[in-house]
């Protein structure tokens, strides 16, 4: 099943954006970062488990990408390419003086969303803590498959490339991870109800 709308190369929109970045268009940098900062950050976070390091590697990934733009021949999607650079950055042990940054949740950081009231925020935080806790308990490969797939909608082929496994394993890891999450979260809810 061809599951990914963008296929293997960048869409014309992505190609146009890269072209503008190549010509040094500052607004295009903004669009590039807005589009891909989240997926790159989450990928690095799922591999390193360290938010500050994930932020630093994300920044370095974009800088390396800008330097390498002329060499990007457009036979992969931009995100796939960025994740390859990020993966190399992680392996190179990139380390910079980190600033403590305030961690936010994507679902709470959306300026379009009306700000929830305090009660609603507490419930939301509880729910997020519960789900994130369960995701963190997953074995590495299952955690990465689940998060790359569900957070950012990567194809199993791209997950396989980004995590150094086969497409089939990426798929199996995803479903095993998902099944565990269902068990754990259901169990927790049963316990909560009996409290």
């Amino acid at each position: 099943m061809e599951e990914h709308p963008e296929g293997s190369g960048p869409g014309s929109e992505e190609a146009g954006l890269l072209e503008q970045c190549r010509s040094g268009d500052h607004r295009a940098f903004g669009r590039l970062v807005r589009e891909f900062e989240g997926p790159v950050f989450r990928f690095v976070l799922s591999r390193t488990g360290d938010e500050d390091r994930a932020a630093d590697v994300t920044q370095e990934t974009f800088i390396k990408a800008l330097r390498a733009l002329d060499g990007f021949r457009g036979d992969s999607r931009v995100l796939t390419w960025l994740l390859a650079i990020a993966r190399n950055e992680i392996r190179a042990g990139y380390r910079q003086v980190s600033r403590r940054r305030e961690q936010t949740l994507e679902s709470m950081a959306d300026p379009e969303d009306p700000t929830p009231g305090p009660d609603e925020q507490a419930v939301q935080k509880d729910e997020v803590r519960r789900v994130s806790g369960a995701i963190e308990r997953l074995p590495d490969k299952q955690r990465m498959s689940v998060s790359l797939r569900l957070f950012d909608g990567l194809s199993f082929r791209d997950i396989a490339k980004a995590t150094g496994t086969t497409e089939g394993s990426a798929r199996v890891n995803f479903f095993h991870g998902l099944r565990k999450l269902r068990e754990w979260l259901h169990d927790q809810e049963d316990n909560d109800e009996s409290d």
């Binding site: 500052h26 900062e37 989450r42 974009f62 800088i63 995701i135 569900l150």
Partner: peptide, 22 residues
């Protein structure tokens, strides 16, 4: 539910990256 729990990059990181690219 899992998608809703996805972490976001720290506030301000986007601006830092764009400034670095410029």
């Amino acid at each position: 539910r899992v998608h809703q729990a996805r972490p976001a990059p720290p506030m301000g990181l986007r601006d830092e990256i764009v400034a670095a690219l410029v």
